[in-house]
Amino acid sequence: MLQILTHFKRDEYVETERLRIWDFYLLFPDKISSIKLKRSENDIKELIKTHIRKENNPYDLLLDTRKIFEKIKPFQLGALKCLASYGIINKDYLALNKVTIVSKDILATYSSKFEPLSVKESNAISLLTSHFYYMSLYGVDGLKDRTQLLESKYDA
């Protein structure tokens, strides 16, 4: 979560569900290629093929991505609550299922203690926090629908 928030350059908020989806794809960057994209998004498909290359790793096989996504939910929410307790993100916004950075200085202090991301992970975060930030989270062509990680059938 810290790595994603470090690369998130906007002063706006991001929805908790969107952040959880981004975190999932940071854990499993090869799965980004399974996100349904429109024909008009061929440039994004090419970026994924070029910079987030899918490797055939038999030890990284996920049979049910939605089930794995739900299994990591408590860890993701726990991480967000921890970040709120440290004053990195706003706890009042978190109660509204939104995440906004309160202190970039504290965020930089903690993130500098981690080892650098791999090129693949860095490319994944850049793509997720740019293109997939502007995509609607809800609806037929929303991020929830395209990833199939969260139920989107009943979204407004």
Rank of each mutant, 00 (worst) to 15 (best):
K45I: 05
E70K: 13
S118K: 08
D141R: 07
Y13M: 10
I72D: 01
A95N: 08
S130C: 10
D60T: 10
K67F: 13
L37Y: 09
Y13F: 14
L2H: 05
R53C: 03
L47T: 12
M1G: 09
D105C: 03
N123A: 14
L77P: 03
Y134K: 12
V14P: 01
L137Y: 00
S118C: 11
K45N: 11
L61C: 05
S122W: 06
L127A: 02
Y93M: 09
I4M: 12
H7T: 09
I21A: 01
S34T: 14
E121G: 12
N42T: 11
D60P: 00
S33C: 07
Q3N: 07
Y154S: 15
H7I: 06
Y93P: 01
I72E: 00
L137I: 13
L137T: 11
R20V: 01
S85F: 08
K49W: 02
D30E: 11
M135N: 09
R39D: 05
A124V: 15
T109N: 06
S130V: 10
T6I: 11
S34M: 07
P58M: 07
R10C: 03
D11E: 15
D23C: 13
V99Q: 01
H7W: 03
L61E: 03
I106C: 00
K38F: 06
K54L: 06
I32M: 14
P29W: 02
L149H: 03
S33Q: 11
K38R: 12
Y110T: 01
F75I: 10
T6E: 07
L94Y: 10
Y13N: 09
F8S: 04
L80T: 01
I4G: 06
E46T: 15
L19H: 09
S112N: 04
Q76G: 02
K49G: 08
Y110R: 00
I101C: 03
L37K: 07
L128T: 09
N56S: 12
S34G: 00
L107A: 04
Y25T: 04
N90Q: 06
T100R: 11
T147P: 00
K45Q: 15
K98Q: 13
F69W: 01
L5F: 01
Y25I: 05
I106P: 01
S118R: 06
A95V: 10
Y110P: 00
L19A: 04
E17I: 10
I68L: 14
A95D: 09
E115T: 15
I32Q: 01
K9N: 09
T129A: 02
S33F: 07
L80K: 06
K36A: 13
F28P: 00
L83Q: 01
K36Y: 08
S130M: 07
I21C: 02
T147H: 07
A79V: 12
Y110L: 01
K67T: 07
T109R: 05
G87D: 04
T100H: 02
